[in-house]
Amino acid sequence: MVTRLDAKMFDSEAENTWCPGCGDFAILRSLKMALTDLDIAPHEALVVSGIGCGSKLPDYMHVNGYMTMHGRPLPVATGAKLANPDLQVIVVDGDGDAYGIGGNHFLHSCRRNPNITHIVEDNQIYGLTKGQYSPTSDLGFVTTTSPDGAIERSLLPVAVAIAAGATFIARTFAGDPRHMAAVIAEAIKHQGYSLVDVLQPCVTFNRVNTYDWYRQRVYKLEDDYDPTDLDAARARAYEWADRIPLGVIYRNDEVQTYEEQVLPLKAGSPLASTLKLQAEPAPGQYEPLKEQFL
C-alpha cells in the first residue's frame, strides 16, 4: 500500500531500556508498521499505556502518548476518545495491567465498546518487578511469589472478553511480527473495542513461556475459520496449553460504538465545545436552565 507515511516518522530519540531480545521490540515495530499502513500519522494517534516494561512503549515512539498508572490506561483512553473522537486511540499495557489490577476496566470496556484498540503484551509474568506470577501464569508456575508453584488457575482473556461482550478479539505472537502487524492493523480498523492479546515472551524472567514454547504450541486459524461464528469462537477461546490459536478469533461488526450512541456528542465533542466557548463565551445559553429552579 502506498501511504504518505514512513514508519520512521514514529521513531523516538528516547533511550530504550527494554532487555535485549524482549518481545516488546517486535510489538513496537508492528504498531509502527500498522499505523503506517493505515496512513495514521503520529499526531493523529494517541497511545495510552499503563505500568510495566511494555507500557514504556509511548516513550519509544514519536506519537501522542499518555503513560498512566498501573491498570488504568483503558479509562484514560476512554475519556480521551469521548472528548476528542478524532484521535485514533490505542491502549498498550501488560497482562498485569489489563487482566489483574485493571480487570474491572477490561470487563467494562468490552461491553462498552468504545472505538479503542487494546494491545495487551501478555508475557504471563510481572517483568518490571522481576518475576512474579501474573493472572495469565499457568497453574504450577514457579516465581518469587509462588515458590511452590502458582495455585491459581490462569485467566483465559479471550474467553472473558467474549463473555463480556467484546466486538473484536484477536491473538497474535510477538515471534511473528508480520502476523502481529496485520492483526493490529485489523484491530485498529475495527469500529469498536478491539482486544489484541499478544503472546510475548519475557526473555529475562520467564524461563518457561519462551519463544520456543510458544512456537511449539501456536497455530494460525484456518482460512475457512469464521470469526463471526460465536460458538466457534467460544470453542477456540478455551484452547490453551497444547494448542493456541492465533488470528482474529471473534468479531461482531454489528454493534454500534459507545461514542456513536452518546447523544450530546452530536452537538460536538467536549473538546470542540470547550474550544468554542474559550474563543467566544455564550453565557446567554444558560439562562433557560435557571427556570428549573423556580
Binding site: V76, A77, G79, A80, N84, L265, A267, P270, A272, S273
Partner: peptide
Amino acid sequence: DDYGMVTKHAEDEIAAVCMALGASYTGA
C-alpha cells in the same frame, strides 16, 4: 443534549477520575 455535555457513569471511581484525566489531556 444540544449543550454537548457528555456525562459518563463509570465502572468505579478510579475509572471516573481517569476518564476525566483522559478527556482533559485532549484539551476539553
